[in-house]
């Protein structure tokens, strides 16, 4: 059996993905259909992100992979190993050193810079999928810029709960045109979507790629009387004391005692080291 190609995918597949990425960058927030391939990891486990990363990686890159903000969760480890093996790229856990970061469900706390690429794994790219299951219908809504359904849903939340009850995968409007699902990041991360790095979103099973070029406007949907609010647990990190980072809640004893710690493990480690 022959060895696998650089970054696993064959050249024709990479060209197809690369063309989709370019159209995605040219039409920010629009979901470009692409002929997603079967990958050697299951659909739903980051195949879209992996295909996008494989298409953008060069031998000179340094890659970081996070899942839930952490470098050492098992699926992040597994994907990092995949690229070490198939692309031979250098890897890192340090956000600032990485040129390509593949992520599931978080944006790193440290602001990303020009020259960095953030690749998101996306389970359901269509922000209106749970309101309208039919692809033919949602495609029409995007074409006509008809987003009433989305606003109705959010407003129903407000009338029932007093708040918009979407805590993650909170939809944004991109450059005043397309409504986009930022993947299931907590809404705490939404304001960070406007950044200096290139953001690419890959949904393998659903066969869609979309993108945000640097400095693209991505406005979280809201209402004048209920403005968007990025929320997090009202605690400092129990390990590094950070007040500004997104926190995970960890149960530490049988009595349900809780500890709040940074979800971004790299951010937390660096703060702890600096304090020492």
């Amino acid at each position: 059996m022959q060895e696998y190609n650089f970054a696993y995918l064959d050249e024709q597949t990479k060209r197809m993905i690369r063309r989709a990425i370019l159209k995605g960058l040219a039409i920010p927030g629009y979901q470009v259909p692409f002929a997603s391939r079967e990958m050697p990891m299951p659909y739903g486990w980051g195949t879209g992100g992996v295909q996008v990363s494989a298409a953008v990686l060069t031998p000179d890159d340094t890659m970081k992979v996070i899942d839930q903000g952490a470098d050492d969760t098992t699926n992040a480890v597994s994907i990092r190993k995949f690229f070490e093996r198939t692309a031979g790229v250098a890897t890192t856990t340090v956000t600032g050193e990485a040129t390509v970061i593949q992520t599931r469900h978080r944006i790193p706390e440290e602001p990303l810079k020009e020259g960095q690429i953030l690749v998101y794994q996306v389970p359901i790219p269509e922000p209106m999928r749970f309101l309208e299951p039919r692809e033919t219908e949602t495609r029409k809504m995007h074409a006509l810029e008809e987003y009433g359904l989305m606003h109705v849903k959010l407003y129903e939340d407000i009338s029932r709960h007093g708040h918009i009850a979407t805590a993650y995968a909170y939809p944004v409007k991109v450059e005043g045109r397309y409504v986009m699902d930022p993947s299931p990041i907590p809404k705490f991360d939404n304001p960070k979507l406007e950044m200096a790095a290139i953001q690419l979103f890959g949904a393998g099973r659903e066969q869609r790629i979309y993108a945000l070029p640097p400095h693209t406007k991505a406005v979280s949907l809201d209402f004048e009387d209920h403005p968007f609010e990025a929320s997090k647990a009202d605690h400092p990190c129990g390990l590094c004391g950070a007040q500004d980072s997104y926190l995970d809640e960890v149960i530490v004893d049988d009595e349900g005692g809780r500890l709040f710690v940074c979800s971004d493990t790299d951010y937390c480690t660096h703060r702890q080291e600096a304090a020492r």
Binding site: F6, K14, R18, P59, P213
Partner: peptide, 19 residues
């Protein structure tokens, strides 16, 4: 060396399209 050269070339094209 198509896999590596086209990877470098695409990155340049993508960076141009993104900026």
């Amino acid at each position: 060396d198509p896999p590596r050269q086209s990877a470098m070339a695409f990155r340049a094209i993508m960076d141009a399209m993104a900026r």
